Amino acid sequence: MSDRRWLVTFGTGLIILSVVLYVLHFLAFHDLYYITSYTLGDLAFLPLEVLLVTLVFHQVLAFRDRRQRKEKQNMLIGVFFSALGTQLLTYVSDNDPDRDRIRPLLMVADTWTAKTFREVAARLKRHPSHVRIDSVDLTAVKRFLGSREDLLLRLLENPMLLEHETFAGLLRAIFHFDEELQRRPDLSRLPESDITHLGGDLERIYGLLIREWLDYMRYLQKNYPYLFSLAMRTNPFDETASAIVA
């Protein structure tokens, strides 16, 4: 209420000041024609001014705000891949029965263009994202995800990432899978039906994780070449990957 009162007072003061200045101008020069024509000219320009301020200037600010928010989102996504995502993707992809077919497709290089990334992303949509759940050490995965629960919670609570729907979906899928594992005290004695259920959860994560990783690689290549260099050298789909520069 006080903000509204302040705006009304401020607006009224500006109007009164304008009237006083016009009166002073008339008293000094006795030129009503100039005052009238000048006022009409200002009124005629007012719609264009509103257009420029509310549309053009607003769009410029909105674009800048979106770019800043996108940058902050990608910083958080970078934290995710550094602390969790790359390791998880490496392990899960090693248990992909179609890994020999998909690995050559995901050997990202600095010569890739935006078109290359789009083509690979389109081909990934047809990849089944299967996981040999019988080969997965669920106890080790449980321990790994359990050690990263605080990070997952912080990322899920961040409103910036909630705006990124696909990445938020990935975080929810990982957190759900972690919760499934933590609620099973002994993962070595699960019935086949339960193992199949967990395999479905892991395959959901795998499909989302590949796409988000590829999108993040494209972002790094475009904006941070030095980070992209490390990401290429630690590519989860490269069997000879090493952070050491040869």
Rank of each mutant, 00 (worst) to 15 (best):
Q87M: 10
Q87R: 15
L76A: 10
D94V: 01
A83F: 07
R132I: 03
R101C: 02
R118W: 04
A122R: 11
A122D: 11
P97I: 09
A83Q: 12
L43I: 15
A83P: 00
L51Y: 15
D42T: 09
H127P: 07
A109Q: 14
H58M: 03
A122G: 08
L55W: 06
R123F: 01
F57N: 05
V92Y: 09
T54I: 03
T113A: 03
H58Q: 09
F80E: 02
H130S: 12
S135Y: 08
M107Y: 07
K115A: 15
D98R: 13
M107A: 10
S135V: 01
A83L: 12
D42S: 10
N95A: 08
N95C: 12
R123S: 14
T86Y: 02
A114V: 13
E71D: 11
Y91I: 12
D134E: 15
L124V: 09
R69C: 02
E49G: 14
D98K: 10
T116E: 05
Y91H: 11
L61P: 00
T90Q: 12
L124F: 05
D65H: 12
S129H: 10
D94K: 13
R69T: 08
Q59N: 12
M75P: 00
A122E: 14
E71T: 13
P47F: 10
L124S: 09
R67M: 09
V120L: 04
P47G: 11
I77E: 02
V120M: 04
L51K: 05
T86M: 06
N74W: 09
H130W: 11
I77D: 02
L84E: 01
P128Y: 07
I77V: 15
L40W: 04
I77T: 03
S129K: 06
N95P: 00
G78V: 03
F80V: 05
D65P: 00
D42E: 09
L89G: 06
E71P: 00
V131A: 14
H127D: 14
L76I: 05
L55G: 07
K125D: 11
F63L: 13
L51T: 09
F117M: 08
I133S: 05
M107H: 13
N74T: 05
R101Q: 13
L43C: 06
V92C: 08
A122M: 07
V50S: 09
I133W: 03
H58G: 10
L55F: 07
V56A: 09
N95L: 13
